[in-house]
Write a protein that binds this DNA or RNA. Structure first.
Lengths: 265, 265
DNA sequence: AAGTGGTCTAGACCACTGT
DNA sequence: CAGTGGTCTAGACCACTTT
């Protein structure tokens, strides 16, 4: 090896990073095809003349990037992961008798959405939810927990909370009402949402999240805290979403109200 | 060691993960104080009776979480990282003669913001920008690149692009106009923005980004593509933001236009 | 049974930081 | 200079999947 690639700022890259770059390039050029396994670690170690640990470290970089997934005992596979776009405003638009705007995401990609309801019932309010509803942590609220898929790949965990009395009026408890019929339902009972807010944070998946979303160790997830208020300015719904970061693109758009009325000095 | 912690779903955690949990707990309880160094890897290895590699692997988990930072040759330090909230709508509100709404973020935390302009001038439009402006990739646009800090910590890279003819009218080129005076400036020249859109993706920091933002290897960044349109529906500004994911919380809120006017069956 | 990745060790050398 | 983390190796054992 003549020169170790004299990168711009004196960066003699470590072997495992160079190998990660190499494997990444092979994936992106289609040398390794999606859903196909990479060569085994011993094979790569032999091919590239390094120890298996070095290969393993290189692959762990690709794992947190979401480029590959590992199946224990079976092999390391190239992930096929186009991003899904989530348009917040469109998603939660109130379309009176219309389609449930919720699960259009991914349809453009030819993926078939599926929802799996893991729990419906009354629980103690977690901190975030209690704060939004203006109640105490642990006070009873109604929750519906779901796991959503696109083509057998889990794409999202969604926990929807309603205040106890509001839930009483709706059909949240009755069925696993497909997708986002909740808003029509709320509207029908005088709690139609007129204002939304979302807070977005990014963090590393917890162990349970990694298991539920089929994620690798150390992968990032997007956490969205979604709150809906009715016309009386009462919070009537909180949804907590946990989504694999590499799978999504979030979209927001808004208009500017004319030059803010007052405040002109 | 009696039982290896019989966690709910038969999860005999690896040593390095248990050690990561331990160190994380020690950080969160203040056993290791912020801005202080952790014990050295050999010390931890001795204390916990494992090899240094295992300690190193545990710490690498804390690094991608943004809990600690490593200073080469010096030690591993606890990060003091409260999240900064970015309110998109408020940020870009048009306040005619008022304060530059841009850099209020973090003020609540007692951090002093600072901006450093790294480049101002004409460049070829990158793909994202070209698409928004409706021009060809590589066509000339004007860019201002900045790195923003809070209390000496880099918090954001912000590249602001303007179409060539629009830039001609503004003072973008003239100075490192503190923060977000661009919008007043655009408004003064008939290009006041009336609509905004933002696309958010999360990915692993590139090498350059990691260097510029003082990030660890494998840390996630939030990428925001921000577009502003004027009253003629022409895109007049594109900003690309790259932000360390562990440092931020993004906030969006919006009102629902009354039950969509028509469309009622 | 053979192959896969997961993990761990002991030891080594390096570049870098501080004093 | 001694101390730090960064990296790499060879070898080992394990749990798991596939055949």
């Amino acid at each position: 090896m003549a020169e170790p690639l004299p990168s711009p700022l004196s960066l003699p890259k470590s072997q495992y990073r160079q190998i990660a770059d190499l494997l990444r390039a092979r994936i992106e050029t289609g040398h390794y095809e999606k859903d196909d396994p990479l060569p085994s670690e011993p094979e790569l170690a032999a091919e590239l003349g390094v120890s298996r640990v070095t290969i393993n470290k290189a692959i762990s970089l690709l794992r947190i990037e979401g480029l590959v997934r590992v199946r224990r005992g079976a092999g390391t596979y190239v992930r096929s992961t186009p991003r899904i776009t989530r348009d917040a405003r469109y998603r939660y638009a109130v379309v009176p008798g219309g389609t449930h705007a919720s699960e259009l995401e991914g349809r453009a990609l030819g993926l078939t959405p599926r929802a799996e309801c893991t729990e419906v019932g009354e629980v103690g309010a977690p901190p975030d939810v209690a704060a939004a509803f203006g109640i105490d942590q642990g006070d009873p609220v109604v929750v519906r927990r779901r796991r959503l898929y696109a083509d057998e790949e889990p794409t999202r965990l969604a926990d929807t909370y309603l205040p106890w009395d509001v839930a009483d009026d709706t059909e949240l408890l009755d069925s696993d009402v497909g997708s986002g019929a909740i808003y029509s339902d709320l509207a029908d009972h005088g709690h139609g949402p007129v204002r939304f807010a979302e807070d977005i944070t990014v963090r590393i998946a917890s162990d349970e999240e990694a298991r539920a979303l089929d994620l690798e160790d150390g992968q990032a997830v997007i956490h969205i805290k979604h709150v809906a208020w009715d016309a009386t300015d009462r919070a009537v719904e909180v949804a907590l979403h946990v989504m694999p970061a590499h799978l999504w693109r979030l979209h927001y758009d808004w208009d500017v109200f004319g030059p803010d009325e007052e405040d002109d000095e």
